[in-house]
Nucleic acid binder design. Structure first.
Lengths: 252, 252
DNA sequence: GGTCGCGCCTCACGCAGCGTGAGGGTCAAG
DNA sequence: CTTGACCCTCACGCTGCGTGAGGCGCGACC
């Protein structure tokens, strides 16, 4: 007996008969022989192919990719390496997941991530969803945005409250420097600028001094940012921009 | 504006509109309001629920479980802990996967895991798939079987050849002891028994001396095992059994 | 040679969790 | 009053099989 029936093959390889039927249907593994009665008969070669299929399935490759891998002229090496990357990525995701679950367990949903509504309560209408939407459109593809989104998605209302307090402290420092009559290139203003940069870096995303410059320019160029600062003190937007540039110069 | 439309909600929460429709269809998240034109309008409370859903989805919980979790009286803690275990298990699987991929890359499918056909070539008909089948039925649920299956599934033909050589060496030791006229309780026989146990432990599964006794009894009770030994030398099956028991006594 | 029981066959529908049109209203802006 | 971006409701498609239903094939035992 040098051929095997579905049941035998299924048992040995730990798959179901239906799975073998399916592989036959889609042409992934068509048994080389059939008995007079129409029984599928698998040869050694078929088994070798199935062996490969089973291995690739454990790698969670879709069946059509397995097919092209086994039939095609493509280098299995390439596929394997790609698959390795995919698995490693899943790995990272799972790591995050475990962390998320642990956090969820710790706080038992009491201090859960904040909703947009709560963010609005905290930050006022400056934090509108329309704005978030636009921000995503403008920055959605950048690493900074992704990093920021990844972090803030896990912030609780309490975290956000802290963030807000930090932001207000930085702004207050700017206002104080401005109202003391110190120029934007002065120590206090530059220190506030550096504090601003560190705040963002700590809470949202990596921020080099150069990128910080770009942000500063936007504070003046984009009326919504400008308004936030101008509401605090007239001329603050430009003052902040200049302070940030001066601070960047200082750290150049 | 204290309610949101599908598109707004979708953007902010990073899901698609279709997903929201789906959640509505299956009753997982039915928006509290509808506009005159039939637009779905999501309230703050709806968003809070969606927030929970999104979190649980990241945990890969099926939607119906999420529903019972959010609606039911069940303790979310229990679900979370269970989910954590599931994720950790996936973790282990992925670890194995990466190892498997690396091995596959190393040997580039050349020294791939052996097929049943190859095993038969190596071990003769004693290693029939029928037998494997039965073994799985008898032992399939035991840890030992699983452990063995997990290990052997990655054995290459070369590995199996080594296994076979080891087995033959052990058997030869038994035969030599038997033919030298030494009793089964003698040193040489007991040493062979211990070598037998260590061989299985190294290649297949953990094997205590007590479990080893059970195996020994089966060698006499099950005609196929008996045959394997009797073919080597008459009376060997019983001799092996006795030697194993003696060895187990020695290590008690 | 009947018939038991297991294994094989071919349909064919079902499942999750949406994706992806089709075909048609709605709403703010110009 | 039109345009264009949204919204609506069907409704079929996709993966990778699970799960019967209804019906032959085959070795064993009577």
């Amino acid at each position: 007996m040098t051929t095997w029936t579905v049941g035998q093959v299924a048992d040995v390889f730990g798959v179901t008969v239906r799975t073998l039927h399916h592989y036959d249907e889609i042409g992934l593994l068509v048994p080389s022989e059939r008995s007079a009665a129409g029984y599928r008969l698998y040869t050694d070669e078929d088994l070798r192919r199935l062996q490969q299929i089973v291995v690739y399935r454990r790698l969670e490759l879709p069946l059509d990719e397995i097919a092209s891998l086994l039939d095609g002229d493509e280098d299995p090496d390439v596929h394997l390496r790609r698959q390795r990357e995919v698995v490693m990525q899943r790995f990272d995701e799972l790591t995050e997941l475990v962390v998320a679950i642990d956090r969820a367990l710790e706080r038992e949903m009491d201090e859960r991530p904040a909703t947009t509504a709560e963010l609005k309560e905290l930050f006022g209408d400056g934090f509108s969803d329309d704005y978030q939407q636009e921000a995503q459109e403008r920055w959605g593809e950048t690493d900074a945005w992704k990093q920021s989104a990844a972090r803030t998605s896990r912030y609780t209302p309490a975290d956000w409250a802290e963030v807000k307090a930090e932001m207000e402290a930085v702004n207050a420092a700017f206002v104080a420097a401005l109202e003391s009559g110190e120029p934007a290139t002065g120590e206090a203003a530059m220190d506030a600028a550096e504090a601003h940069r560190l705040h963002i870096e700590r809470r949202f995303y990596d921020l080099s001094h150069d990128v910080h410059r770009g942000l500063a320019d936007m504070y003046v160029a984009d009326p919504r940012f400008t308004k936030t600062y101008e509401d605090l003190a007239p001329g603050l937007a430009a003052y902040v921009r200049d302070a940030i540039h001066a601070n960047a110069d200082r750290h150049a």
